[in-house]
Design a protein around this nucleic acid. Structure first.
Lengths: 95, 95
DNA sequence: ATAATTTGGTTTATAAAATAAACTTGTTTA
DNA sequence: TAAACAAGTTTATTTTATAAACCAAATTAT
């Protein structure tokens, strides 16, 4: 009746991050921070969790002399996102 | 870009309860427990929170000699649910 | 009759999670 | 060269979810 909602995705900030990455395929830390209006600390933690789960991959490079953290969604992450959306529908289908 | 998701509804169990009540308009505690597969303790706590927020109303009656807790969604709760669904769409609209 | 079990929950304690504050490292700018 | 800034990370705090323990009344078994 009510399938389990992937706890990794059922989090406002992590879901926002994944949502961004689904459409952009690649985004830098400051951009994600700006779009989600999250604090850097919170975002850092949530990105770690998504990365640890293999939902996103994180590349640390440089942009000139400045560090630059780039995030991309993985196929695993995309699949999880799609399954999460499907599962959610069971909860919302009154509409 | 990403509207706040009402924290009262962005909870697997509370959302399941609300989802049930949106379609049934009235349900007894044991029925909700069965449908959501929640433990009684957890369900009791979450029902209290929804009730305290005015999202549902809880009526305690008797069914013969046995206590019977009936839950109904309120107009406030229905509105909140609909707004939550709308807000969620911002996060999911890649699909 | 009374002891054990079940029903229908509530209360309390614990585990996990979200979040922000404080900190670090290097880079500009005054 | 000192102050401010950028880009994060780490740590601490607060909140939340969840289950375990508990309670009262009713039913069932002995």
């Amino acid at each position: 009746m009510f399938p389990t909602l992937d706890p990794l995705l059922h989090s406002e900030l992590r879901l926002a991050v994944m949502s961004l990455l689904v459409s952009t395929e690649e985004a830098e830390f400051p951009y994600i921070k700006e779009q989600t209006e999250a604090t850097a600390g919170n975002l850092s933690v949530q990105i770690d969790k998504l990365s640890a789960a293999g939902y996103i991959e994180v590349e640390k490079t440089f942009k000139g002399k400045k560090p630059c953290t780039i995030c991309r969604i993985t196929p695993t992450g995309l699949k999880a996102f799609e399954e999460y959306v499907e599962a959610l529908k069971s909860y919302l289908n009154a509409h």
